[in-house]
Computed example of a mutant assay.
Amino acid sequence: MDPMPVDDVLSTVLAAYNLRARIDTNPRLCGEWQLGTSGTGNASFHLVGEGGCYLHMVDAPVRRLEAGDLLLLPHDDWHLLSSRDSWEEPANHLNLVTGEDPEHAAVTQLLCGHFEFDSGRRNPVLSGLPGCAIIRHAEAGERLGHLARLMFIELMERPPGYRPVLDRLADTLFVMAVRHHVCRVGEPPAGSLMAALADERIRRALDALHARPEAAWTLEGLAGEAAMSRSSFAERFHALVGQSPIEYLTQWRMVLAERLLRDGRESVAGVMEQVGYASEPAFRKAFKRVHGFGPGRLRQWMRRLGRY
């Protein structure tokens, strides 16, 4: 089996954690204004569609954002967008423009939203991203630029069903932004999936693990995929990912198991086999250790919610 390229591994991880994007607001601003969206606990983003603004963050220089720039804030760091390169407390003076206004030549249009995962904020994708990532229009490439323009066309024309279309486009925006970060930004931080994907040998082991999570993997087998000795592989994997290969394998299997159990079409025994467990007690123990509750409890919650 051919190994999966980096973006396919990312797609597998994002699908398992069930990425969902939501558009929160799309203000048109003029005059003196400032806007902050931190404090929600969500991974947020701001896309500049027109004009420009200044980004203020704690212990960081003021940065200018221009039309087409994308700002990602994966860890809900405090931030403020403003019409000026300085700001004041409280951040509450907004001057909203709903259409073309001849009295205000300088208009800034923003598209603001957030990303959610079934696992909350604790997942290997967000952990590998910095507190603030700015993807400039000039370096984003044609695909990201086309996607941003399509989002603002939907927003401007507001055809029937434009809200879910915007949300789905925002899903894609996040995936493309993460791919851009992995491929073009400097060395990612250790202790994250991003760092592991940047290492060719460790990535080969992850390719194999993600392609066949149900296989009877051992440390020796994974080290063989990476063409490394057992000890060197274990040390390198832990340094990059932040946990041992077998710990990562167990966590990934339990993520997949939770997804299958939420779907409701498989029994606990059926899910257990699909993720590579032959012993139901061992499967239940691993599931509870990773998620904090057993598979039976998850089934009960899903029934109460009317999911199945």
Rank of each mutant, 00 (worst) to 15 (best):
R136I: 03
W78K: 06
R158K: 15
C183Q: 13
A105Q: 15
V165E: 08
H93Y: 08
R203Q: 12
H180L: 03
P164S: 00
L144K: 02
I134G: 01
V175T: 09
M151P: 01
V182I: 07
A140N: 01
C112H: 04
R203W: 08
A148T: 04
P124D: 08
A170P: 05
C183T: 05
L71T: 07
H104K: 15
R204P: 00
H75S: 02
R143G: 00
E100L: 15
V182D: 05
A138S: 11
D199M: 07
A91E: 03
A91V: 14
W78R: 13
N123V: 03
F174V: 02
L80K: 02
S86M: 06
S83C: 14
P189M: 09
C132W: 00
T98L: 14
S82Y: 03
H137W: 09
A105V: 09
I134C: 02
P102V: 15
M156Q: 15
E88D: 12
D69R: 11
L80H: 07
F152N: 08
Y162Q: 04
G99Y: 12
I153H: 06
V107G: 09
C112L: 13
S119Q: 10
A195S: 13
D207N: 10
L206Q: 05
E157H: 11
D171Y: 03
A208Q: 06
E200D: 14
D76Q: 08
E157L: 14
L173M: 02
T108G: 02
A133L: 15
V165C: 05
F174C: 09
D101I: 15
P188G: 03
D118A: 14
W78C: 10
S83L: 04
T172N: 05
L81Y: 07
I202W: 04
L129S: 06
R136E: 10
V185I: 00
V125R: 00
L129W: 02
L166G: 10
P90D: 10
A138C: 06
V178K: 10
A190I: 12
E89Y: 13
L126W: 01
I202R: 07
P160K: 02
G161R: 00
P160M: 03
A133Q: 15
E100K: 12
P189H: 06
V97M: 14
M194P: 00
G120M: 05
R168M: 05
D101W: 13
G145D: 03
D85I: 06
R122Q: 13
N92F: 12
R149E: 15
F174R: 11
H104F: 12
R158W: 06
H75P: 05
R204D: 05
S82G: 12
L150S: 09
M151V: 07
D76A: 06
M194H: 14
R163D: 09
V107I: 14
R143H: 08
W78E: 14
L144A: 03
R84L: 11
S83W: 07
C183H: 12
H146A: 08
L71Y: 01
E142C: 04
G120T: 02
E142N: 09
G191H: 06
C112G: 10
H93V: 09
T172Y: 10
L155Y: 12
P188L: 09
M156N: 07
